[in-house]
């Protein structure tokens, strides 16, 4: 009954998607296709024009091979992954912990409204400001952190936070963590609020304690929102640019140099090899798609998938009947 109605209204699905599709075609598709074209062409140099460039038919994957061979690309990919993991795990951990605290129905945290508001605030400052502030905070030889370390006798000369790759990555990961845990928390709390309270009541009746409730009820129930957070964080993490570019740059033996910095450098500095930049971003695109598919697969709703299959079979059967 229900499904029949849905089929009737199907044309509105197309109709309502038209503005999105039009805007997408005009403002996104052209640049994207252009990028793919450039990735397979010899489009490079400041004076390059589409007219004068051509696709490398004899060696279509030449640009991709060059990018893979580049030590700097491999290094930047490693850096990006490490920084993402270093910031994502504690970020998710803290966000989950805060979510558990703030959504605990047995003991309410007073003032949690204020805390929620404050925790999101690092996200509204521009990356440029954040980078300037942290450059000053971690400055060497004298900055607030180093002065404190020396005064407390923890370090004799202070720590040069810009010297080793590990330290640079650590600070970048910390900034990312600090900017984004509030956002993740807001998202996760949204997920928990959407859970049917009856489920929690049932768990209470079964005598589940706090920890059990959180891991066995809450977490599985917020799967869709977890998927959203994971996928967007993965995409954002692998496209990380602002903070590393403004804070880390080449410092710490390029320990904070990310793939997007490589892409931008290759396109806009030196010989302006747009084709390599495009190839590198196509590579990143493929990697992100693959990783996201893995996430989608792991986090898929097994019941829903089954249901869908069943529905399809029924529909087919019904159609077959009609045709008959």
């Amino acid at each position: 009954m229900k499904s029949k109605k849905l089929v009737d209204y199907g044309k509105y699905g197309y109709l309502f998607s038209i503005p999105f599709i039009l805007a997408f075609l005009v403002f996104s598709l052209y640049p994207i296709l252009f990028t793919f074209y450039i990735g397979f062409s010899d489009f490079a140099g400041m004076t390059a024009t589409v007219k004068d460039s051509k696709i490398l038919w004899s060696e279509p994957f030449k640009n991709f091979a060059t990018v893979f061979r580049a030590n700097l690309f491999r290094k930047s990919f490693g850096n990006t992954c490490i920084i993402w993991i270093m910031n994502f795990i504690p970020q998710m951990g803290l966000a989950l912990l805060l979510t558990a605290w703030f959504t605990d129905r047995r003991s309410k945290v007073k003032g949690q409204g204020i805390f929620k508001i404050l925790f999101y605030m690092p996200n509204i400052i521009t990356a440029a400001t954040v980078a300037v502030l942290f450059t000053q905070i971690f400055a060497y030889p004298s900055g607030p952190i180093n002065t404190t370390l020396i005064k407390l006798g923890l370090s004799e000369k202070g720590v040069n936070f810009m010297l080793t790759p590990g330290r640079v990555r650590g600070v970048v990961a910390f900034i990312q963590f600090w900017q984004w845990y509030g956002y993740t928390m807001v998202m996760l709390i949204s997920g928990v609020i959407g859970i049917n309270p009856e489920i929690f009541e049932a768990a209470d009746l079964d005598g589940a304690n706090r920890v059990q409730t959180f891991f066995l009820i809450t977490l599985p129930c917020i799967r869709t929102i977890m998927l959203y957070v994971l996928v967007t964080s993965l995409i954002g993490g692998l496209n990380m640019f602002d903070i590393p570019a403004l804070y880390a740059m080449d410092r710490g033996d390029a320990g904070g140099y990310t793939v997007n910095m490589y892409i931008k450098d290759v396109a806009f500095t030196g010989k302006q090899r747009y084709n390599l930049a495009a190839a590198a971003s196509i590579i990143m695109f493929v990697i992100i798609v693959l990783l996201s598919l893995v996430l989608f697969y792991i986090m898929r709703d097994k019941d829903e998938a089954k249901l869908k299959k069943l529905k399809k079979q029924q529909l087919k059967a019904a159609k077959a009947k009609k045709a008959y």
Partner: peptide, 23 residues
């Protein structure tokens, strides 16, 4: 040298003729 970097507060401190903060 005092191991400072250009355009950072510790570099400017040397223009002021003061020791580095905490040193």
């Amino acid at each position: 040298c005092n191991e400072t970097s250009d355009w950072q507060p510790s570099w400017f401190a040397d223009m002021k003729g003061l020791p580095q903060e905490g040193k």
